[in-house]
Design a protein around this nucleic acid. Structure first.
Lengths: 149, 149
DNA sequence: CGTAGTCGGTTTGAAAACACAACCCACTTG
DNA sequence: CAAGTGGGTTGTGTTTTCAAACCGACTACG
């Protein structure tokens, strides 16, 4: 007979990265958001372009609606038809997608990026992270943990 | 009896975001990378701080090593002990983590961010995406799809 | 020496997520 | 009125994920 042991200590770090990943940290959610950025708003289009199974997609769409990332809107009354649109929170994910896109291009894929964006400045767009306060591009070693969390 | 139907058309979009998510698009991988950024290099520490089950963590670590995001290094011969370090590809994920962190703070968590960074400019760091070519901060509506993919 | 603890995992067995095809309903189109 | 179409749900297996226990090599304590 074994004594009841105290539950193993588990104290995952309290962190907003983890918070974010709880909403979009699965295999399909960010691809759904990507499709909405590309203005593909319909269930069937999203299913095809992401490759997600339809049932899983239905579940994910509900979850994203619950979390306020997307909104479901009726665009036809008879027959009833719905489409999905990004909310402001959803649109605010563009930095995440753009940095992921660059990383995927530079470190995963070898060869050309099949999808490219042009910036209004006239050049191909590539994401670079800057400090909002001073505007400078972030360089390695410039960040330190704020001692008072 | 049912006729053999042609396979349903599935042509997920060819996309480097999808490529990136195939490597780090699960519930734990980016949290592992986060821990390595925080210089927590040991299996047990990573397990505790992420909350990932140990077997899943072992699998993820192998996968990340295979994809060149992290490297496994022996730091003690007797007893044999290993630790993990970010490769250059792993370090290049910082923009993704920093943009996710900001999003999680602004749109998921309500309340203070428990982990903050200071930039070398003296202010608290907040990630902002800029165009590498012109250096300007990205604003809504400035991106267009390059017609020749 | 014996016992406990650490470290980096693997094994086990059950629950949840996933994949795929089929089905459904309210229409529209031919 | 038969054949789509859009937006899903249902059913049926397969694969992942999970929590907890276990393991082997070692160290530290008494």
């Amino acid at each position: 007979m074994r004594m009841p042991t105290a539950p193993a200590e588990k104290a995952p770090r309290d962190c907003t990265i983890a918070d974010a990943l709880e909403v979009v940290g699965d295999r399909w959610s960010l691809l759904v958001v990507r499709e909405l950025f590309y203005a593909q708003r319909r269930f069937t289009e999203i299913a095809r372009n992401t490759g997600a199974p339809r049932d899983i997609l239905a579940t994910r769409l509900r979850k994203l609606v619950e979390h306020g990332v997307i909104a479901r809107e009726q665009y036809s009354r008879r027959p009833q038809r719905y489409e999905y649109r990004l909310t402001e929170a959803g649109r605010a994910l563009s930095p995440v997608l753009l940095t992921l896109k660059r990383w995927g291009h530079e470190y995963v894929r070898d060869g050309e990026d099949p999808v490219r964006f042009d910036h209004s400045c006239g050049h191909e767009f590539m994401a670079e992270v800057h400090c909002t306060a001073c505007g400078d591009a972030l360089e390695p070693g410039q960040l330190t943990l704020d001692p008072k969390g």
